[in-house]
């Protein structure tokens, strides 16, 4: 069994609003699948369907080959999850909150100490949950998701509220779990940089539709590169370049831009042309689209302006 998380044409409506439509995806064993989308794109709805919290209007979801349905509780033994902001019983301590999950999952008593140590919650173990900072509440949420050493992790915005050191720590932890222990991670986020660093594959969801799936390694190839040129007189430069068959368009700040792959690979051609034409460049740069711009271009916002 290589495909651990599978969805087939998941569709869910809330009255006349389509939350998700025809979402089909699969996540392979040991993969970290980044589920990327703006707020309200349908990430949490998809995750709640995967966890059996809501039923799709049509389509199916499978975890470890088993169909997600109300009475199939055995499938949650090896699944850990965190949905949206993690809340805990406010009057219970960190340890007591973990005790609840330990009891529910029939785990050994040591599991609480182990996870407290792993997520560096020792100083807060006896603090009641309502007095935890946002970052530590998030750690407690992650501790509840990881306490049983799951094979599958479904995490909705897990780094919300964590400081940069905490984000780094959790990223390292998840990457280690996936790479060294074969844990399959499905992680949703709207923080593009975070997903790019963590995920091995990214699915982009927009307005309830999965609009693209891409391997993170291939992402660089998909990001557009453009040549930017500035001169003292951009009008003359643009006309000079056009006469030689190179079409440039001015950006909002007057810089000339071209997506022509030939020019992107050989900017020296443009430099020679402008120097010989008496309009030498004051700036010549190849700019690569970052993930944020790529994402905005893919979902059709701002036309992917760099």
């Amino acid at each position: 069994m290589n495909e651990i998380i599978v969805t087939e044409k998941l569709t869910k409506h809330y009255k006349d609003v389509t939350a998700i439509s025809d979402i089909s995806l699969n996540v392979r064993k040991g993969e970290i699948y980044g589920f990327l989308g703006l707020n309200g794109a349908g990430k949490t709805t998809t995750i709640r369907i995967l966890l059996g919290m809501i039923r799709p209007d049509s389509g199916n979801a499978y975890i470890n080959g088993q169909r997600v349905e109300k009475d199939n509780i055995g499938m949650w033994t090896q699944t850990g999850y965190l949905v949206e902001v993690p809340y805990s019983y406010p009057n219970l301590t960190v340890r007591e909150n973990l005790e609840i999950i330990r009891q529910m999952r029939s785990l050994h008593k040591n599991s609480i100490d182990n996870i407290i140590e792993k997520l560096k919650l020792q100083p807060y173990a006896n603090r009641i949950a309502k007095n935890l900072s946002l970052g530590n509440a998030q750690r407690l949420g992650l501790a509840k998701a990881l306490i049983h050493k799951p094979d599958i992790l479904i995490l909705d915005e897990p780094t919300n509220g964590l400081d940069p050191a905490g984000i780094f720590e959790i990223r390292e932890l998840l990457m280690d779990m996936a790479a060294n222990h074969g844990v399959t991670v499905f992680i949703s986020s709207h923080i593009l940089g975070e997903i790019a660093r963590l995920a091995t594959r990214i699915g982009i969801i927009h307005e309830g539709k999965l609009i693209q799936e891409v391997d993170t390694q291939k992402l660089e190839q998909l990001c557009q590169k453009k040549l930017q040129v500035n001169t003292i007189n951009p009008k003359i430069a643009r006309s000079l370049l056009a006469q030689n068959g190179f079409l440039f368009t001015p950006s909002e700040d007057g810089v000339l831009e071209s997506l022509n792959p030939e020019l992107v690979s050989h900017p020296e051609k443009v430099a020679s042309l402008l120097v010989n034409g008496g309009c030498p460049p004051t700036m010549l740069a190849v700019k690569e689209e970052d993930l944020e711009s790529y994402f905005l271009r893919i979902i059709g916002i701002n036309g992917g302006v760099l």
């Binding site: 966890l51 919290m53 509780i73 699944t79 999850y81 949905v83 809340y87 805990s88 999950i101």
Partner: peptide, 15 residues
Amino acid sequence: TNRTMKDLLALPVSR
């Protein structure tokens, strides 16, 4: 009200 309901829904314990 504590928003802990979701923690009880995907566990190996029947609802």
